[in-house]
Structure formats: C-alpha cells, structure tokens
Design a protein around this nucleic acid. Sequence first.
RNA 1: GCCGGGGUAGCUCAGUCGGUAGAGCGACGCACUCGUAAUGCGUAGGUCACGGGUUCGAUUCCCGUCUCCGGCUCCA
Length: 643
Amino acid sequence: MSVTITFPDGSERRYDSDVTGAEIAASIGPRLAKAAVAVKLDGVATDLNRAIAQDGMVEIVTEDSEEGRHVLRHSAAHVMAQAVLDLFDGAKFAIGPPIADGFYYDFEVEQPFTPEDLERIEERMAEIIAEDQPFERDELSVAEALDVFGNQPFKTEIIESVDEQEGAGGSEVSVYRNLEFVDLCRGPHVPSTKRLKAVKLMRSAGAYWRGDENRAQLQRIYGTAWESKAALAAYLERLEEAERRDHRKLGQELELYSFPSELGSGLAVWHPKGGLLRTIIEDYSRRTHLAHDYEIVATPHVAKADLWQQSGHLDFYAEGMYPGMVLDETTEYRMKPMNCPFHILIFGSRSRSYRELPLRLFELGTVYRYERSGVIHGLMRARGFTQDDSHIFCEEKDIAAELQNLLDFTLMVLRDFGFTEFEADLSTKDPEKYIGSDDLWDKAEDALRLALETAELPYEVAEGEGAFYGPKIDVHVRDAIGRRWQLSTLQVDFAQPDNFDLLYASDHNTRERPVMIHRALMGSIERFVGILVEHYAGALPGWLAPVQATIVPVADRHVAYASEVAERLHTEGLRIDVDAADDTVGEKIRRAITQKHPAVLVVGDSDVAAQTAGLRLRGEDERRGVALDEVAASLVELCRAPR
RNA sequence: GCCGGGGUAGCUCAGUCGGUAGAGCGACGCACUCGUAAUGCGUAGGUCACGGGUUCGAUUCCCGUCUCCGGCUCCA
C-alpha cells in the first residue's frame, strides 16, 4: 500500500503507507527534517511521528514559523507544568496555552511563586529538556481520563465539560505523556523535549480560573520559547526597546507630563513642553476640523444626573462614572464620562431643517471615567482625558457619503502624524441585542464596508460585536516597532436620537429622526501623545517637537551672537533655545541630543565672523559654516506642519 | 476591584539583622572660556509615601490608607 502526498508547491510524491511526517521531511532534505516540529495534513496540524494512512496535502511546519513556534511554546508549557508538579507537592495545574511571543501555565499552589521559585523551575525545565524525553500521544476514554486526572480538579472539570480546545472531544480525550508527566492536550507537540532550545520564564502573576473573577485565583507563570538562542535574544531585545520607549519614562525625561500622586491615580499634569506639544496637536485638530466643515462647540465638565439618566449612561455605565455630587440636598451632579448628550442638546436646542444636515459638532471634550484602579496605565488609560470628539447628525440617506468622507479624514489625520500602516475592525449587529430596523442596520453596515473598501483599508469583521445602538469601525495603527494600537472609532448610533427625541424637518416638511455618528479620530489626546512618544521613541518630528533647535555658543563671548541667530529663527516661527549654561560644548550637545531636539546649532568665532552656524540635524553629521539663510530654510523645511 | 512586587534626595538606586541614612546624575557656588555625546573642585538638599500599633527607641517589625509597577479582569 502506498499514499500520494501533495506538497504546497503542487508537487506530489508517493510514500509507503503509514509514513510519518518526520520521514516525509527527511525525504525532502536534512535541513527541513531538522527544522520540522509538526506536520499539517490537509490543513490540520499533527505530530511528526504520527502515521499518515491516506492521500492528502502535507505541509511541514518548521520551528521558525509562527505555527512552529506555537508548537514549541505549547511543548514548553507542558515541560513547565511538569517541572512545577515535580517541585511543588500538591500543585494543581489548570491550562497552559501558547500565546503571542510565549506561553503560560496556570497553577493552584499553596504560596504564590517567588522569583527564586521561577529560577528553580527554569533549572528543572533545563534538566527535563536535557533528558530528551519523547512526547507521546494517547487517546483515553472519558472514564480513563477521569481516573488519570482524579486528583486534578481543573483537569477533571475540562474533561467533564468536553472542551475540544483542551483535547477533550466527544467520548475520547487525547493526552500527551513524557515520562511520568501526562497532560490533557490536543497537540501537536515536538517529538521530544530536546527540541526546546531557547526557553525562558518571564514572570508570574495572578489569574482567574476560566478568566472569571468569581472563581479560583490561580498563579500564572509566563514564559517564552523560540527556535534558537538568537531568536530569544532578539525577542528580549525587542522588549527592552519597548521599555526604552515607555511614554511614562520618556515623559519624565523630556519633561512633558507627570502624574503627581497628590492628584489621584490616572490624572496627569502637563509641564510646559508637554503643554506645548498638546497645544500643537489640539491646534492641528481644530483647524483640520474647521477645514472639514465641522463646527466647534464647548460644553461643561459636569451635568445633572438626570441628563445621564436620560442618555442611559447611569443605567449601563454607572460604575465607570465618578460618584455624584449632591447640591442643595436635592440635585445630583456627575462628571461627564462622554460628550454626546451635550452635543445632542445643542442639536435639539431649536427646530432643525434638513438644509442644516449633516450637522457636525466638534469638541476637544475632557471627560472623566472612574477606571478600575488596576487598569490605569500612564496616559494610555487615564481617568481624565480629552477626546477629539464629534457627533454628526445626518439624514439616513446621507450615512454612506458621510462615513466615506469621515474615513478619508481619519486616515489623513493619522498619516499626518506619521502612521503608515492601518487595520480596521468592522463590528456588526448582535442579533440578540439591538435596536433600530434591520433595514437601517444593513444600510449602515454596507456603508461602513463600502467606506473601508474604497479606502483600501484591510479589515476584519467582528460579527455581532457592534454596540446595541449601531455598527462601528475601529481603526488601528502599527507603530515603529510593530505594535498595534486602536486609535479611531466611528460609530453609527440609532438609539440616542430616539432617547432625546431629536427631529428635523425634511424637504417634504415631515418630522424625521436624524441618524447620529459618534467619532473620535485620535481617540484621546492624552493617549495619542503617549502613543506618539512611544512610536517616535521621544524623537518627535520637527513640527511636533517642543524645542526645534538648540543653539550652543562655544564660549561666553558667542552668547550674544547665539541670541541674534535665535531671534532670526524666531521670525520664521521656529521654536529655538539658546543653551548659555556654563558647560563645555560637548556637554551641551549631549544635552540637546538626549532631549531629542531635532537640530543643534553650534556657533563660535568663525560663525560670528561669517554669519554662519554649525548645523547638526538629528541622526546626521554636522555641517560647519552653514549660512544663516540656509540654516533657516533647512529648519523651516524640517519643521513644516503637514497642513 | 483581584493576585504578586515596590515607594529612601529633583532623578536612578544602595543601605539600616530596630539606635533617625549614602552614591552617581541633576541643582547651586567657584574656577575654567572651551568647536561636537559627560571639565574640575566645593556646597546645599531627606518627617526614609502617609496614619496607627509594638518597643526605652521604628525608615527598618505589624496593621491600615494612598500611590506606582507586572499581570488578571474591565474598556458602554
């Protein structure tokens, strides 16, 4: 008997029946055999040592692919559990999947793991790996499995719930053994533990069983595993790079903002340089909105609780709001967690005509949300922040055109700030929970889809993930080190116009309900600044840099000339500092560079004589003796705002 | 909110097995007047997060609060 195997390139080979993936890989080449960690048979990943009994498509999964690393990490998770069960008597193990860049395993143990425990576990894992223990697959009946895992309550629960993800499907469950250690698992795994060449434990943390905070709190250990020591080192370097870019650290070093504990958690103060950066961004936001036919409004930070009752926020969102302030023992006020009700009141302040629509109200609106203490993270997740928020009131027939324009506007803004890679999520109707007619939903979803396709934006549909009041698009960007951030959100809302009984007079003089679009492009100014700082590692482009150039006088006698040069450049609208401190030239240059200023000018005797300066642009070598006009032209070009 | 780990000078950190503390950088002063990523010397600067307890004595041990970090959960 023989089987015909088809490869991804379309070629075919015949093998003896019951050939294994390992043998197929070996028949193709020794390098492939060495790199193989699993095999995909008709798209389903399985172990290298399983016999293939029928014709099919075969793809060898190698350790340097994402799928291959997945296998490595899954196997590493087993080895970690094995080590923990070896070292900690009575430890119960729960689940241990591969995740992006690593893996984890959850345990129930007497005491939380200490850093020293992690070292011991890592050492034990190294021993297990060195022993080259084979991973062997076995299929057990439910009864057998319950017997094997009799003293493991989490495993028992998985078996009883017949969780296919964890290897328990139908009447059989699959398990993997290496030596005495056995775990429920769907596989596949590497053939033996020695294939794990670069494994490192990262940290431990609390986590809930099944992610449910009402259930047992387990101890999770995170680890990472890679195909080689070099790949592991590169990953650790990436983590360090992310740490170097941390906007909380850079914000302090560059004197942009801080979080005084006297204010309370999640509340930032903006120092002069950060305040300037913010102002530049806000000015950009206002002028581009005005240019796109938005009208700027302003609204207060508090409002009567009744308003939030009417908008529904107090029913659905009370936990996220600051508590009430009762005035005169009768009236309760709340900090605003959103701007929409205010904009709605402006719309409803008088009768509206179809001639005014779409009516686009824009506000840099500062809102306050009582985020749970554990989730606060610098500017990324704060309790007070300013949205570049707008509510667009339009006729049903205009939704498509409006969304189209809006998405174009959104991408323009994101590109202006230097982002080039975008991905979107389209969240659609949850058939269980929605308001508004199916027809309206279909129209809105079609309009969102069309807008995405016209903009050639790659997107994924999140089926049923829309809010009950309408579908939405979220736009994500990739930053300089490949991280994904959600920035913009465009939401269609069929509910609030109803809640507030908004009407306009149509061209037939009938009263019609407008459709509302909520949208924020940067999302929150605070968070946007945080993301920019991390994206640029603090080295902001010229137009955003609070100080665009520092002038360094070589000696005291050059300070006057330095000030003249600064004056000259100020007239071009440039933001220039003169560093007249009593330090060496080297020290002042170092200071300007570590402060990430886009340009440094050095002026000495020869520059005074020739009306020139030494010009050193970020990342470039210095040019000596550049004429001031050329310096000015060069800096103006470097610091030009996108619009 | 939950689990774990922290909070010592402006910053980064060391230290005190319970007897009220130290470095580097920064700041300030003096000298130097200097041409490309740290000039030298000196000085000041601390309720050891806050409140309570134990103790002859607490920055150190215990409890509580605030706050930060890493996760979990959450982000209408």
